[in-house]
Design a binder for these strands. Sequence first.
DNA 1: AGTCAATACGAGTAATTACTCACATCATGT
DNA 2: ACATGATGTGAGTAATTACTCGTATTGACT
Lengths: 208, 208
Amino acid sequence: MTRARTRPRKSPSQPRSERTVEAIVEATARILETQGLSGFNTNAVADKAGVSVGSLYQYFPNKDALVVALSTRERALLGVALGEAARQAASLPLEGALRRLAHTAIHRQLARPDLARVLDFEEQRLVLEEPDRALTRDIAGNVATLLRRYRAVIQVADLEAAAYDLIAIARALIDAAVLRGQVEPVALEGRVTRAALGYLTGRANVAS
Amino acid sequence: MTRARTRPRKSPSQPRSERTVEAIVEATARILETQGLSGFNTNAVADKAGVSVGSLYQYFPNKDALVVALSTRERALLGVALGEAARQAASLPLEGALRRLAHTAIHRQLARPDLARVLDFEEQRLVLEEPDRALTRDIAGNVATLLRRYRAVIQVADLEAAAYDLIAIARALIDAAVLRGQVEPVALEGRVTRAALGYLTGRANVAS
DNA sequence: AGTCAATACGAGTAATTACTCACATCATGT
DNA sequence: ACATGATGTGAGTAATTACTCGTATTGACT
């Protein structure tokens, strides 16, 4: 029972094939954000990319691999932006740092809001089907590192878990905002920041 | 282009058919929590329910209707529990009230954690495909009503939206906890309560 | 006992779609 | 020019599965 691969082929590369892979990943994004899940099939992706299905399967072993590649690309962009934000936030108090992170994440997700929402969903599906798949590990690691600097003011012991929770909160609030069409970035940033700050520093503990 | 129905048939009812419908809904639950999405097909549900596919389609117009029915059943249970909790919390300060709600929601979701997670996911899918589908409207309404009592201490203006956001936060944190296997109810309750309280009362507003 | 509507059956169908493979074309080194 | 590996093609296949429909059974009422 060998676990199915999701990112195997595409070993050799001439510049030509690089462009093909790029086109396929971007076609996946465009299909997902314009047609949604129901329009997302490999033939449609190949068409949109201007290549044949055969070429698609030369570089991606199965349909999920498309989602993984796209997710990886988008998460990398987010990761870079968050890294930059974290450096800038180095001297800020916790609230300011969280706000910067929230601001950055919101900015990136709202750049292509429909894509963000569908992709979040697809990532959830992948994790549901294969729980150890680590799609947000890098980002969570970076967030955890940042959190460690504020250990003194944070009530939560497990900062790794806290990082994942903060990501889940941000995701939930951003996706909900997109769904409602309430995408005023500043207000949204405030909501995310307050929830995160409450999670980390609130002193609502055991009492009943 | 008439919108597809999701809960149409089953008009007439002898006691026999009631039991059939019950069996089908519960079979859906058991399939989802034991086999996950990949095992969820109408033949499997019919088998598990001990009825034929034909009978299934006598009462449910399509596969999604199964999910809607199950979701409705589970949300009703949660709704009743939350209503009770809200009454008991009537005299408590906001934090205590939120804690009671969190406690109740967690208790119910952890009763069948795997089902809760897959069902949350399926609900997301339904909303993604049909944005105006209102699966949590009743619960959100109840939460909003409760929030109105605390208007004085809440920073957020739109309490309807806040209710949806709080539900999204709770969902995200509970599902994340189930995924990680960290289901200590008390700690989880604390996390949800702190995030909710921060969201509502935090004074992280506009500053940059 | 007989009628009839409600309920149940489940083999079959039609549609979708992920994926393959035998073949074509390209581009690079000689 | 030509050889050769890399890259591209897309009609076809196989598997899955939601859903139908003609038929069978049940049970309530007379």
